[in-house]
Design a protein around this nucleic acid. Structure first.
Lengths: 347, 347
DNA sequence: CTGAAAGCGCTTACAG
DNA sequence: CTGAAAGCGCTTACAG
C-alpha cells in the first residue's frame, strides 16, 4: 500500500493524468475511459477492471465538470467556529443542502481580512452556488465582489445594517427579550439585572430593547446600574453578575443575553453562596442543547438555530435557481422555555 | 431587485448562459468575457462594466473548471451532527484546509444507507480531493467505491476494525481510561464505577480496558456490577449512575466514558442528595469546552479533538498530493484534566 | 461493448 | 486592450 501510493505520486508528477493518458495506457479509446469514470454500465467487465486499476494507480481526478453536473455547493461562513451555536446552524443547513444533493462548505474567517480574501478566492474557484453568512460583517469590498460574481447570498442573524440587499434570516430577539423579562416580572421580580451582548450586534440591541420594553410596560423604572456589558461568552457573564451583586440594591433576578453568560452568572452567584433559583433567578438566551442538563436546568429563550439554518439554505437555493423569494427578511419565533433557574423572589 | 432576480431566472431558463452567449449579447469576443470572469486586469473599464452587468443579469455560473484550478475540496463526514464533539473536529479540519485554499464540505449521513448513497453521488460530482470519515461505519460497498474512485480516505476515531487500509487518527483512549482510574485510586477510592460507551466502538472498548488495567495493577478486584452500559449520551449516564447507586455496596467514585454521561451521572447524584465531590467523585471523558464551566468543574480526560481534525486534514491532503504518509495509524495523547469533581472518598 | 467524429465550454498564447 | 486560432479535457450521439 505504502509503495503503491508512492508510485502513484511519482506517476502523477511525471505527466498530467488525464482521461487521454489513461486511455493510451489501457489501450482503449477515450470515450471508453470516460464511461468507466462515470460508472456507466455498458462496459465489458474486463475492460472496466483494467481501466479502473489504471485510474486508481495513476490517481486520476476529473479535471472538468460535465455540463450540468456542476459541483453543487453552498458556502456557510462563520466568523468563528468556537461555539456550540455553530453546530446547530450547520446541522440545519446541511440537512436541507444534503437532501438536494448539495454540499455544505463550512468556513471560518475569524474577522481577519486575509482569511476573508482567501475564502473569496476559494469560493470563486469552487464556483459555489450560494453563500450563507452567519452574523458576519464581511467588508463591503468583498460583499461587492460577491455581488458582482452573481452568487446568491443570505445572511443569518444579521449583525448590523442589512448588507447590500441580501435576504436575512434571524430570530425574534426583541420578542425574546420581552418574554424573558415579562416572565421574571410575573414571578414578582421588581429589580431585574441585564447582562448585555456586544453592542455592535443587532441581536444584542434587540434583546436589550425587549428587556426595557417589558420593564416599562410593567411600570417598572429603568435603572442604568442594572444594565451591565458582556460579550456573550462565559467570563463576561461571570463578571457582569458580580458587578450586579455589588450594587447597594442588587437585583433579585438576572437576565443574561446568552446562555453562556447565564452559566457564568450562575457560577458567580454560587461563589457568593447564593442559590439559584431560591435566592436569585437567572434566565439565559439561546437554549443550547446542554442547557437542558445544566444545574439547575436553565430557563432560557430558545432560538431555533437549526431551523434558521434550514430556512437560510432553502432561501439561497431558491435564489440560485432564479426563483422569487417569499420575503427578504425573515424572523423566526423565539420561545421562552421555563425550567428550574427561575422562581418567585425570596422575600 | 425582486424583478431583476425574476428576470434572470426566466432568462436562465430560456437558454444556457455560457460565456459564448454573454459574448454575443455584449458584442465582444469569447476570450474577452473569459478575462472578465477571471478578474484579469487587461480589460478596458467600459468593456468590463458592460460584461459584468450582463454576467450578473443572466446569472452566469462557470460550467467547467480551468485546468489546474479544480475545485479544491475535502469531505468531512459525520454520522450525526448532534454533539458539541463535532464542532471541535470541524474546527481543526477547517483550519488546515482553509489555509491550503481547500474547502471543507461537512456532511451527516445518519447511519442511513440512503443518505450515504446520496452523499457518495454528491462526492463524485464535486470531485472531492479527500475524505475524512469520523467514527464512521460506512458500508464496505461504499468503502470500495471510494477506493475505486481513488479518493484518499482517513478515518478519525475509528469505530471498529480498521476499514480497508485507510490511515486512522485517534486518541489514546486506553491510556486515558487508565489515567482517569489511576487518579481516582490515588485519591483513595477502592470501589470505582464505570459507565461504558457503545460496545461496538473501538474507543469504548479501549476506555473500559484502561479502567480495568488500572484496577488490576493496583491490585483491586474487578467487579462486574461496577460496569454499567451507556451510549455516550446524557440520559444513559443518568440511568447508569442510578443503577450504580442502587448497589448494596455502591462505588465512592464514578468514571463515565463521556462528558455527557458524566453530567447525567452528576444529575442523578444530585437528585439523591449526594454532593460531588464531597460524597462521591465523578470523572468524564472528552473535555468538551463547557466542562470548564460546569458545576462543579469536571475532572475529565481531554481528547485533542481539534488537533485530531488537523492531523486528519494534513494526512488526507498529503495523500491527495501523492506524498508518503508518516504513519498510517496515529493516536494523539489524551490528558487528564483535574478540576473540582474529584476528591478523596468521604470516610 | 467499443471507437471515430463532432461538439462543448473554456483558456492560452499570439498578433495586432 | 482585443480577437482569431489552436488547444484542452471531457461527453454525447452514432455506427458498427
Amino acid at each position: 500500500m505504502r509503495t503503491e501510493r508512492g508510485r502513484r505520486g511519482a506517476m502523477a508528477a511525471e505527466r498530467k493524468v488525464t482521461i487521454t493518458a489513461i486511455a493510451r495506457e489501457a489501450g482503449v479509446s477515450v470515450p471508453t475511459v470516460s464511461r468507466v469514470v462515470n460508472g456507466r454500465s455498458d462496459v465489458a467487465p474486463e475492460t472496466r477492471a483494467k481501466v479502473e486499476e489504471l485510474l486508481r494507480q495513476y490517481g486520476y481526478r476529473r479535471r472538468t465538470h460535465a455540463p450540468g453536473d456542476r459541483a453543487a455547493l453552498l458556502d456557510l461562513v462563520f466568523n468563528d467556529l468556537d461555539s456550540p451555536w455553530a453546530v446547530e446552524i450547520i446541522r440545519g443547513v446541511e440537512e436541507v443542502a444534503h437532501s438536494s444533493g448539495i454540499g455544505t462548505v463550512v468556513s471560518a474567517i475569524h474577522d481577519r481580512a486575509g482569511a476573508a480574501r482567501q475564502w473569496m478566492t476559494n469560493l470563486r474557484a469552487r464556483a459555489s452556488d450560494g453563500v450563507i453568512l452567519v452574523t458576519s460583517v464581511l467588508e463591503p469590498l468583498l460583499h461587492n465582489e460577491l455581488h458582482r460574481l452573481g452568487v446568491p447570498i443570505v445572511v443569518v442573524d444579521p449583525a448590523g445594517a442589512p448588507a447590500l440587499s441580501a435576504p436575512t434570516v434571524g430570530a425574534t430577539n426583541w420578542a425574546g427579550g420581552l418574554a424573558a423579562t415579562e416572565h421574571l416580572i410575573q414571578l414578582g421580580h421588581r429589580r431585574i439585572g441585564f447582562i448585555a451582548g456586544p453592542p455592535r450586534l443587532l441581536c444584542s440591541r434587540a434583546r436589550l430593547d425587549g428587556y426595557r420594553a417589558a420593564l416599562e410596560s410593567a411600570g417598572l423604572p429603568l435603572d442604568e446600574e442594572l444594565e451591565v456589558p458582556g460579550d456573550f461568552y462565559h467570563e463576561s457573564g461571570f463578571h457582569g453578575c458580580r458587578q450586579l451583586m455589588r450594587l447597594t440594591d442588587p437585583p433579585t433576578a438576572v437576565f443574561a443575553a446568552s446562555d453562556q453568560m447565564a452559566m457564568g452568572a450562575i457560577e458567580a452567584l454560587r461563589q457568593r453562596g447564593l442559590r439559584v433559583p431560591q435566592d436569585i433567578s437567572v434566565v439565559g438566551f439561546d437554549d443550547l442543547p446542554e442547557m437542558r442538563w445544566s444545574a439547575p436546568p436553565l430557563t432560557t429563550v430558545r432560538q431555533p438555530l437549526a431551523e434558521m439554518g434550514k430556512v437560510a439554505a432553502r432561501t439561497v437555493l431558491r435564489q440560485a435557481r432564479g426563483e422569487e423569494i417569499d420575503s427578504p427578511r425573515v424572523e423566526l419565533a423565539t420561545e421562552l422555555v421555563v425550567r428550574a433557574s427561575t422562581a418567585a423572589p425570596a422575600r
